[in-house]
Amino acid sequence: MSGEVFVTVGTTRFEALIKAADSHAVAEALSRHGYRRLIMQIGTGTYKPQRLVPSGTCAQHPSGLEITFFDFLPTLKQQMAAADLVISHAGSGSIFEALVMRKPLIAVPNPILMHNHQAQLVEHLAGMKHCIPATVDTLSKVLSNLQLGQLQPYMSGDSRGIFSRIDDIVTC
């Protein structure tokens, strides 16, 4: 493995997740597990990783981990595809993009979202062992105790039934 870890907040703002990832404990835990690069997509948040990246947009951590960040790209497919571990906000788009690509996923719901239905999705997928749940407070602990072997691959849902049902409704 190339040892890439990709942190993403999607099109939203989730500074607390970036702050949580921007920690020496996180960098050390990742390095200990054999990861070599940490890439953070920080979105519209104004917080920039400053503990791990004191200046510019990339740095090398004393543990050996290479760290970079950026705000947006038109598509994150490439970063997702290259990642060996994805740490994502709990938006359904990012979650399923990672799961469909069979990426080990740590999903972090944003607690300040108005109606927190993100939490129910994460809880459900975690219950089926498709992802590891974390909060901004538990992220570094989850990473130090990381055991990816317990994860079960997500089987993509069959959508044909939806389309044929729509055909039926429109016809009748």
């Binding site: 109606h115 129910q120 729509i166």
Partner: peptide, 30 residues
């Protein structure tokens, strides 16, 4: 005119408010 509401995949335990409105009023065809 048919109205079809496809609830978000993020909804596992509860319908969203707009789906509930259509569910209770039976205004959607599905």
């Amino acid at each position: 005119c048919k109205i079809i509401y496809v609830e978000s995949i993020a909804r596992v335990n509860t319908l969203s408010l707009s789906a509930k409105i259509l569910y209770i009023s039976r205004a959607a065809d599905a």
